[in-house]
Amino acid sequence: MDKIAILIPCYNEEKTIEKVVADFKKVLPEASIYVYNNNSSDRTVELAERAGAIVRNEYMQGKGNVIRRMFRDIDAECYIMTDGDDTYPAENAKEMADLVLNKNVDMVVGDRLSSTYFSENKRPFHNFGNSLVRKSINFLFHNDIKDIMTGYRAFSYEFIKTFPVLSKGFEIETEMSIHAIDKNMYVENVIIDYRDRPEGSESKLNTYSDGIKVLKTIARLYRTYNPRGFFGSIAALLAVISILFFIPVATEYIKTGLVAKIPTLIMCGFVMIAAIQAFFSGMQLQTGIQKNRQDFEMNLQRVSDEKKGLMK
């Protein structure tokens, strides 16, 4: 079992990977550095090995698939995940590792948005998207994580071995943040100085398609983790629609004693029934969520015992 494992998912990062590995070796010489190659067609593997990293391959394309493989393969007391594009400073890694090892933090978030991100990043829609995702998740899940989509994080063994990786691509960071919030895990933020990619290094993130995937992920996870809120919102919307259409029908009936708009009345009744069904569906699913959280706590205890066994 490693004391500290540095995890670097890579796809065509020959411009920067050698420097990234060297920087982390300098800051944390005791750490094992793993570069997971995701079907690179350039010299990423050769340069990572030359810099002293342990190189492994994941052939299913997508960052989420790479992270799933990393989390399965590696046992460590502390994990530090970073990108191979040299946008995250290695200098913060020691502070992040200390929080996990000495303060029992489950996830440390490398917070770009509180420092240099908006000045360094030259893609305005990325800036807008990061702000939108942060505000959405903190509003929906009642938390205050400073940077939802950062790729620079540190994790405890317990987090890694209880985190179900479902996303295949860049929406994985959003999934991590929501999992930590929902499972009441200890999260800390460390402000980092983000720097834009060096010249010649190209981002693999598509602003629009990946942004839509992230928003879909937020909606899916909100439905999964808070069905009472999700279906309750649908129920409230349907109830309001039903009432708004019913008011003219009721007003006319009071005045004339007649119901001229029978189809509207029938529609209002069906919409209100749908609202009631949505409300009780949310309440029923919320009961299952409570049971899942109880099961998670028992599984967390099992993983903690497993970690103690590996450390002996």
Rank of each mutant, 00 (worst) to 15 (best):
N57P: 03
N57L: 00
E58P: 05
E58L: 04
E58R: 13
E58Y: 10
E58T: 12
E58Q: 15
Y59F: 12
M60V: 11
M60T: 11
Q61L: 14
Q61K: 13
Q61W: 12
G62Q: 12
G62W: 12
G62R: 13
K63N: 15
K63I: 15
G64Q: 13
G64T: 11
G64H: 09
G64Y: 06
N65K: 14
N65Q: 12
N65S: 14
N65F: 11
N65T: 03
N65I: 11
V66D: 08
I67F: 10
I67G: 13
I67V: 15
R68N: 14
R68C: 04
R68P: 02
R68D: 14
R68V: 00
R69L: 11
R69P: 01
R69Q: 10
R69W: 02
M70I: 13
M70T: 08
M70L: 15
F71L: 15
F71M: 15
F71I: 04
R72L: 07
R72Y: 08
R72C: 02
R72V: 00
D73L: 09
D73C: 08
D73F: 02
D73S: 14
D73M: 07
I74W: 07
I74N: 03
D75W: 03
D75K: 14
D75R: 05
A76F: 14
A76C: 05
E77A: 07
C78P: 12
C78N: 03
Y79W: 06
Y79E: 07
Y79T: 06
Y79A: 07
I80E: 09
I80G: 10
M81P: 00
M81C: 00
T82M: 02
T82E: 07
T82Q: 03
T82A: 07
D83Y: 04
D83V: 03
D83P: 04
D83K: 05
D83F: 04
G84W: 08
G84D: 03
D85Q: 01
D85H: 00
D85W: 01
D85F: 00
D85C: 01
D86H: 08
D86Y: 06
T87V: 12
T87G: 13
T87W: 00
Y88H: 14
Y88A: 07
Y88M: 01
P89D: 00
P89R: 02
P89N: 03
A90G: 12
A90S: 12
A90W: 04
A90L: 02
A90E: 01
A90H: 01
E91K: 01
N92F: 06
N92H: 02
N92E: 09
A93Y: 05
A93K: 08
A93E: 09
K94N: 03
K94W: 05
K94R: 15
E95N: 00
E95D: 05
E95T: 09
E95L: 00
E95P: 00
M96K: 05
M96F: 07
M96A: 00
M96V: 01
A97N: 03
D98H: 04
D98E: 15
D98K: 15
D98Y: 06
D98L: 08
L99G: 01
L99P: 06
V100E: 02
V100F: 14
V100S: 03
V100D: 03
V100T: 09
